[in-house]
Amino acid sequence: MRPFEDYNPFVHLVYFVSCSAIVMFFLQPVTVVLSLLGALSLFFVRRRLAEGRSHLYSLALFLVMALLNPLFNHNGATVLLLINHNPITLEAVVYGIFAAAMLLAVLYWFRTFSQIMSSDKLLYLFGGVSPKLALILSMALRYVPLFAKQAKRVNDTQRAMGLYREENLIDNTRAGARVFSVMVTWGLENGIVTADSMSARGYGIGKRTQYTLYRFYRTDVLLLCTTLLLLSIVVVGGALGALDMQWYPTLRLPRTDALALVTYVAYALLSFLPTILEIGERARWNCLQSRI
C-alpha cells in the first residue's frame, strides 16, 4: 500500500475525473453527500487543518450559491414565502443546497488534485497527447520563476535609480510598464540562447522519445482497475435509473431499492478509496515501526 499521492499520475487523472464527473452528472442527494464527504475526508487526512482560512471562503461560497437558486429560480410547488411577488419555494431551496454542495465537492476534489498534480505529472500526461507542447510547457514552467526573479532584480535596480516616485500612481504604472517591457526584451534574448542550446543538443533532428520518471507498478494497475470497476458499476446503475431524482415541481426522495443501494455502495467506495489508502498506509507504518 503506497500513499495515494505516489501513484501514477494517469491513475490520479482517471480517479479525479471519475469522481467529479459522476457527481456533476448525477446530481442527487446521496451522491452529493458521499462525494462531499469523500472529498473533504481526503483533503483533511492529507492536510489536517492547514489553510484554515480558505475553508471559511469555501463555506461562504457554499452559502451564497445555496441562496442564489431560490432567489432566481421560482419553480416548485411548495411556496415558503413571497419576496417582491416572487415565490420562494422549498424545492428551489433544497436544490440550491445540494447544487452548492456539489460545487463544493468538485472544488475540494480539484483542490486535492491540484496539490497532487505537480508540473512533472501534468507534463507526463500532456506528453502523451503532444510531446512538443509538453516541452513548451516545461520551458515556460522553467521561465516563470526565472522571469519573476529577474523582474524583481530590475525593479530593485530601477528603484535605487529613482525610477519610481512615491504617491504618483500614473508614473508608477508607467514605470511598471517599462520594467515589464524590458523583461520582454530580456526574455526574448534569453530565449534565443535557449534555442541555440536546444539545437546544439540535437533538438529537432528526428523523432523524440519521452523520458519520464513514472512507471506503472502492480499497485497502479490495481488501483486503476478498481476505479474503473466502481465507475462502471455507478454508470450502469445510473443508466438504469438508479440515481434518478426529481427536484421539481415536487421533491421525490432518491430510490432505495437493491440496484440503487449497490450503486450507492459503489460510489461510496469510490469516494473514500484514497482516504482508505492513506489511513491504511499510515496504519501499516505504525505497525512496522512498533515492530522495530
Binding site: 512538443k132 520551458m139 514552467l141 521561465y143 516563470v144 519573476a148 523583461m183 526574455g187 534565443i192 529537432g204
Partner: peptide, 20 residues
C-alpha cells in the same frame, strides 16, 4: 525551435506578469 521557445517565453511572461 526558435518559435517554440518564443511561445514559451511569452507564456512565462504573461504568467510572471500576474504577480506585478
Amino acid at each position: 525551435v526558435r518559435r517554440q521557445v518564443i511561445i514559451a517565453v511569452m507564456v512565462a511572461l504573461s504568467v510572471a506578469g500576474r504577480f506585478i
